[in-house]
Amino acid sequence: MLDMALTISLALILMAIVFNTFRLVYGPSMPDRILALDTMYVNSIALIVLLGLWLNTKTYFEAALLIAMLGFISTVAICKYLLRGDIIE
């Protein structure tokens, strides 16, 4: 039962990442692309957690935590750049 659930959720997350890539490539404006990258890192955390469940290891959680922190900081930095024209004033 768990194997089937893992397969289905991996497929759904992969399709979500395909949608994000579509918005990243065709996004008409800059905030659209930032939003696509933001969603993409959240989905990649889900992918890493599912991979950890699939391989039955706990090694990948540190990677997930790192991706969460760096993704949030990079989103804030690019938004600051769009708002002010500068990141650190």
Binding site: L2, A5, A16
Partner: peptide, 29 residues
């Protein structure tokens, strides 16, 4: 656990689908 995994993946999929298909940035947010 299976229910949580499939439900969560469905939510993430619906969110990304909304981001891909809506008309406006403020809707896509």
């Amino acid at each position: 656990i299976s229910l949580l995994l499939i439900g969560g993946a469905t939510f993430a999929f619906i969110g990304s689908m909304g981001m891909a298909s809506m008309q406006d940035f403020f809707m896509r947010l």
